[in-house]
Design a protein around this nucleic acid. Structure first.
Lengths: 351, 351
DNA sequence: CTGTTAGCGCATTCAC
DNA sequence: GTGAATGCGCTAACAG
């Protein structure tokens, strides 16, 4: 099961010491060409592969990056991890992958598990990047990490994300421009997360700038639970003076909200306009197409790894890097009914 | 960066030997309650976490499972990995994740990398499960592994998959029942893969059973390269007596083929009916919905891990486990034009 | 019940 | 340019 060929076997086979074999493998010191060829021959003949365990025990650092994300079932995180994997592979590292299934309580344990494996560094998406004892622990132990999708504001932590507030500000602006006056904000799991909070801030800023009323987030408990959502949304969307539009904190939520609204007998976008956030492929092919904010998720994963290595090798200081987003128009965002538009409001422009 | 507190630190702090600390941690031998409480106190006080490296050096086995898949950008593999991660986590293991980006040539190197990390076992999707030197090597070294999505037929290897031939047999039967007589088979990357081969076999068997002509697979080189596909498909679908239906070897390919056909001015399903394979969520929401074979991808990932642990712990013999699939009807598969139906054919039933 | 000790595979001194 | 020796953190065998 485990390889029986060790550095010692190679040394015997090549008629030299294990130190010399190590030198040949790592080019850590000059060796005579004659010995080197003998060693290399022995290595290939025996099919020897240096144990990462042995090396790590000595160097106290595995060539792995620990990853913690909410779930791979969300294409946003799948794409991020794909980007991380490619970037890590370029640097001869592999990913140690774990998922919280959207339970913030699991973060601490998963991080501990990864740290126990002596990962070179960590890439994380957490519920809250500012108020987070696990991250405090990593800081205290000087274990390098980069957040992804999170947007820390109060703390000095490395992160790769989009400017969530600016994105929802723009998206809300587009809804207002389409004549919507009462716009609901729907949040999914992680509703108390930093990025969800930032997204709501952008929405609220745009509403206020237009002289409209920003509403508190409506929290929907479970992803993809369409029947549950229909029930939760009935009160809001079947009442008089109901919202004519809803901004969802992410695309997956927008999809199930669309289903829930249809279950309530409401048309999208005929009765309610809808927009999401992330830019998953699903939104492109559904009918009508989903209006959303397109984010470079795969690229974010690559950047997170690049940033982590910069910290690892060049001792780069932690910083928040914002990657560009684009507004993606879609069929779910249509003009508001004429009676709704009649409500006065001020024009909105970017801050 | 690395933890400075070792089992020795704990031993000193608790006033006992490192062996006793080890015993407390692993419950590998009885210890007096008094010493145990002292040790546990020391562990929490010092924030000690046993190094997986140290343990692995001794046991020659890390609590990790090596994973090799083509790409996380394909939701099929993302879901599989999500299932693996959950099942592995239940057993206190983590995944070491790598991807080939659909380049079979990378398989060997990635597997070597994972083996060098002393993974407990491997879960792989390879290009060819039967003719595969890398798998031969794993067999020779008695390193346990389970294939996923692959369907080995000639070799005795552990695998979790659906019955690809039966699935395409049924799917092709549905197309024939809808009146289609000339049905093309389109294969994406990995076109020489075992599962693609098995899928084509099922298609060919159904065609032959109906007295129709089975065609060789049309190989499309790149995923999602719609313009390239349009060019490659023009000859086939713009000719007289052209196919009225096409069976694609997977859903992602079906999506880009749908785009290519529309670029050629052909309606789906008005001019050409289409079906895929896998059952990705995209197919559900696109318009028209995609006819396909629904496969339990997440469950397959879980089963692969369960099977691997059965081999690891109970020395279970390698076997191929088929998980159930279902035909998913969809708008892309419609009745053939009347003139096409007039071609005679025999009724098809399952073999 | 507990302590001592010998490695696991490797990198890295320090001699030569 | 090379080899012998040491220790990384831990488990397990053996003594007590």
């Amino acid at each position: 099961m485990a390889r029986i060929v060790t550095i010692r076997t190679v040394a015997e086979h090549a008629g030299c010491s294990i130190a010399t074999v190590s030198r040949v493998i790592n080019r850590s010191a000059p060796t005579s060409t004659e010995v080197e060829t003998r060693v290399r021959a022995a290595i290939t003949a025996l099919g020897f592969r240096p144990s990462e365990i042995g090396r790590a025990l000595k160097t106290l650092r595995m060539r792995t990056l620990g990853v913690v994300i909410p779930s791979l079932m969300n294409p946003v995180f799948a794409a991020s991890v794909a980007g991380m994997e490619a970037a890590a592979r370029e640097r001869r590292h592999t990913l140690l992958l774990t998922a919280t299934d959207y339970e913030a309580g699991r973060e601490a344990e998963l991080v501990e598990t990864l740290v126990a494996q002596n990962v070179a560094g960590l890439i994380l998406t957490v519920a809250d990047a500012d108020e987070n004892p696990t991250l405090d622990m990593l800081d205290a132990e000087h274990i390098p990490y980069v957040l992804i999708h999170n947007e820390p504001v109060r703390t000095r932590r490395a992160a790769v994300c989009v400017d969530n507030a600016a994105a929802t500000f723009a998206l809300t602006g587009a809804m207002i421009a389409a004549g919507h006056r009462r716009i609901a904000y729907l949040a999914g799991r992680f509703s108390t997360s930093d990025r969800s909070r930032r997204r709501h801030e952008g929405y609220a800023a745009a509403m206020t700038a237009a002289g409209l009323t920003a509403e508190a987030p409506v929290e929907l408990d479970y992803l993809s639970d369409v029947p549950g959502h229909a029930e939760a949304l009935a009160g809001l969307f079947l009442s008089p003076g109901r919202p004519t539009a809803a901004l969802c904190s992410n695309d997956l939520l927008a999809l199930s909200v669309a289903g829930a609204l249809r279950d309530l007998g409401l048309g999208v976008p005929a009765d309610v306009s809808l927009a999401g956030f992330d830019g998953i492929a699903l939104g492109h092919v559904m009918n009508p197409t989903l209006a959303t904010v397109d984010t470079p998720t795969r690229r974010m994963g690559e950047r997170a790894v690049e940033m982590l290595f910069a910290m690892l090798e060049d001792d780069a200081p932690p910083r928040v890097e914002h990657l560009p987003f684009t507004l993606r128009p879609g069929g779910t965002l249509a003009a508001a009914p004429a009676d709704a538009v009649s409500v006065p409001c001020s024009p909105v422009s970017n801050p």
